[in-house]
Every structure is written in structure tokens, then in C-alpha cells.
Amino acid sequence: MKPPPFEYAAPTSVAEALELLAVHAQGEARVLAGGQSLVPLMNFRLAQPGHLVDLRRIEELTRIRAEGDTLVLGAMVRQSHAEHAPEVALLAPLLAEALGYVAHPPIRNSGTVGGSLAHADPAAELPAVALALGAELVVAGPQGTRTVPAADFFVGAFSTALEPGEILTEVRIPRRGGGHAFVEFTRTHGTFAIVGVASVIEVDGGGVTRASIALSGVDAVPVRAAAAERTLTGTVPDDATVRAAVDATVAELSPSADVHGSTETRIDIARATLRRGIELALTRAQDRR
């Protein structure tokens, strides 16, 4: 399980990185972030890039900052850095909570926020969080910079709106009030989730004014629990409302079976996990008032 050979460069600016990707476009150049998904794939020889452009020396990509009420994370911010950063706790506590579920601390010490989003594993935590929070992903390319809403970024399993030669540089996350919750179901601690649920629910006088809920693991891309959001919004939710919200969403799901669960079991687990996520977010929202 040794990786195949490749050429390597560690540029110090985004411009330089883009140039390297362009120059080596024919040599199957890829971006290397923390490597916690890519290197295992290379060890299995399931990925064989000819050239890796390591972004670790680009300092501007390693910073966390607040722009007013927007949290801005450089793509190369290590997951453990973000997990414990005060700006994240303040502006996006859902993200901080979700980061605690990403594999294990030694993985998070290398893995990056941008790397996880760009890898777009259907079972991963951060894509669902980005979707729930309405994050914007800033992409640099040969033609300049563009911003892609999370809802448009994830296009398939391990597939994103990033074009060849483009680099995800930044994630911008608007602050959300209310109660948040990240819950997931894994078979053993730290392994890939069967289902993850990222929720932010805002309440006013007991009534839900806005609910943003996303699920991971139920489709090729993270999905919004739109039916649940609609069902909850405008109500003072009781158990029956929550159950109806969950049922409305679950009725639309058709997760693929795999070695860890049939479609039916995955739906069962999604049902329970979604309900627990909503309940926790609601409880926290009500506690915060």
C-alpha cells in the first residue's frame, strides 16, 4: 500500500498554485490540502495524480477571520484549528460542533476545512454543514475568482463545481442565530457516518421562524431537509410536528444500500437521527431565548 510516484510543488501564493495547475494540466495535476482523504486513496492506488500542488505554504489560506457577521475560513485552515477557534465558536457554533465528529483529532490536525469540502464525500460532515448554513465557497481560477453557493457546489459523489485548474480558497459562512445541532450515526467512533444531520433553527416566542437542516449520507450529495424545514416553520413545534417534519423529509429519501445498511435501515437511521437533530436544535434555540 505505497502511493504511486508524482511530481510535487509547494507554492507560496494562490497565483503560483494556479499557474502550476495550468502548466501540469496534462499531467493530471491535483491540489493537495491536508491529504487525509487523498493520501489513503493514493496508498490504495485508487488515485494516481501525476503532479501534486501542495497549498500548505500559502499563508493567506490558513487564516480564520470575521468580516462583520460573516466567518471567513481559508481553505487550508486545519480542522482542529477551526474546531477550537473562538471566531468559529461565536459565528458558526454548528461548524465547531460538526468538526468534533470529523474522524479523530490526529486526522483533524492534518485535515483541512477546504480539503473536506472539495473532496465532497457524501458521508462527510462539513458539506452538510456548509449547505445548512448557506455557506459560500470562493473559488480561484485562471479567469479570476468566483463565488459558489454551497447548494450549487456539490454536484455528485466526490464531485464539485470546481473546474480543472481551479482552487477552493475560502469558505464564507454567514452567522445564524437560534439553536444549532450536529448529530450523526456512526457504527464505531470516528468512522464514516451512515447519516449526519446539521440543523440551525431560529425561534421567536416559541414559534419557528427559520429552519435550515441538511443531511449527509442519504444521497450522492448533502441534501436539504426542505420538507422538514417547511413543516416546522411557522409552528410552535410539539412532538407531533417534529414527527411530521421528519416523516415529510424521510418520505423523500432513497439512500443507496451498502455493506453497512440496506436502504430501509438507512431510512430508519435517518428518521431517528433527523428527529434527534431537530429536537436538540429546538431545545437549544428555546434555551437561548
Binding site: 457504527r187 445498511g261 440496506s262 430501509e264 435501515t265
Partner: peptide, 11 residues
């Protein structure tokens, strides 16, 4: 006794 087997039995 995986979640899959247990859920199938419970169902």
C-alpha cells in the same frame, strides 16, 4: 448484530 440486522429483525 449490526444495526442493519437488528433493524431488520425489529421491523
Amino acid at each position: 448484530i449490526t444495526p442493519d440486522r437488528l433493524r431488520a429483525a425489529i421491523r
